[in-house]
Nucleic acid binder design. Structure first.
Lengths: 229, 229
DNA sequence: GCGACTTAGTGTAAAAATTACACTAAGTTC
DNA sequence: GAACTTAGTGTAATTTTTACACTAAGTCGC
């Protein structure tokens, strides 16, 4: 049995909540013309490596980022994870022991899309930011992994007021509200949202205002206690 | 790498929240006189076995119970899990590949202590119900596993109103309150607790009352929608 | 039978949180 | 200056939470 970590990396561009997907590297077989198989970034855990370290490594290789929000959320161990022919073929091409069972520890991460600097990695082809509500069919059970991560994100957003990691260091309350609405997939009332956020005492008003916008410039805020990990 | 499931099995005797611990089987070395090493019940996951099935198997072997509340809560993969000499020695005596790294998927379960019928199992010596607030030093990282499971139990108790699985089918509201107080480790107000529980609409009043008690007999209740898994 | 004892069961009021709702302010663009 | 767009704001009703005391109804012992 091998163990992998797969990372659901969330980003936000003010319009959409995105998830970072990779094109699986495909075999050098030009006779085969097919659409690249999308997957979550992940890699096998090394022998003396903790899960956290493995997930951080995957992230570092892919994004050059470290010390960012990264959390384990579930272990996927269904023996049927590899049902599809395409998945079996990929394993045969890229894994030393393709017949060996692989279980996965799911991690999710929150990054500022502006901080993202794509890097070639040992395990990924091209990368794509994809709207989390429009995720195509992925390799293995990765669609289920994304769904579970989103459910956890929703829950943590409400319980722990996470999410700031997805926004710029200085943000407007409307940006924050938009983030909540997209993650929760429901409309929130502006007056109530502002009142509630201020009551959580997690943000502080800056002395600056937004500039270069076609409407009344909004007050800028930042998070009171930035979370580092 | 091998994968095990370890089960934190909670029980409740109206005075204490308990966790089921096993004495690790110890080598037949009468020259060694030592206190049995306590541990959580667990076993290696078999080749074509899901985590859920493995955990259910452990439970079934130990308690003869099936279809009870059982949930995965965390994956433990620290390479340093086996630091102690005693743990290394145990692995050497009982595992086919003692040097091979083992990671663990943690599960927790809730059972009625009256339903518990101890059974000899392949992986456990004697079993003990131990007060969850008085857990001794356990093998490997099992103390951390217990702590995390308790935190999850506390959270799920409040978020999902679980816990009925720890009580008899017919229970008083005071028994339920006592369960909450012990799990949460804090005193609750009786009037408020009763009002809140009734408002969750998860219990129904039976037409019976408690008998044979030294005080006013309490109304009996049962859970409205018993959870099966 | 009565008193002692113990827990069961109950409601109110104040404070806090949630829910629903409309209009003026302050920029840019033409 | 008008049009347009989003920013920012408070009130009232409802619901939930928090804090608090006393009578009811059994068993036991004398």
């Amino acid at each position: 049995m091998d163990i992998s970590v797969d990372c659901v990396i969330f980003g936000f561009d003010e319009q959409q909540l995105k998830v970072l997907l990779i094109e699986q590297k495909h075999p050098d077989q030009p006779s085969r013309s097919f659409k690249p198989q999308m997957a979550l970034p992940g890699d096998l855990v090394k022998d003396q490596e903790s899960f956290d370290d493995a997930a951080a490594r995957v992230l570092m290789e892919l994004t050059s980022l470290k010390g960012i929000y990264l959390k384990q959320f579930y272990a996927f161990g269904n023996p049927d994870r590899v049902r599809d022919l395409k998945d079996r073929e990929w394993l045969r091409s890229f894994r030393k022991n393709p017949e060996r069972r692989v279980v996965t520890i799911g991690y999710y991460s929150l990054i500022k899309m502006d901080d993202f600097k794509p890097k070639p990695s040992s395990f990924a082809g091209r990368v794509h930011w994809v709207d989390v509500y429009k995720v195509p069919e992925l390799a293995f059970d990765h669609n289920e992994i994304v769904d579970r991560a989103l459910a956890i994100l929703r829950h943590e957003l409400m319980a722990d007021h996470i999410g700031f990691e997805l926004l710029p260091e200085k943000f407007t309350l409307s940006q924050l509200q938009r983030l909540y609405e997209i993650i929760l997939d429901k409309k929130l009332d502006k007056r109530n949202f502002r009142k509630n956020i201020l009551r959580t005492d997690t943000v502080k008003a800056l002395e600056e205002k937004q500039t270069g916008v076609l409407h009344k410039p909004a007050q800028l805020f930042s998070v009171k206690n930035p979370r580092t990990s």
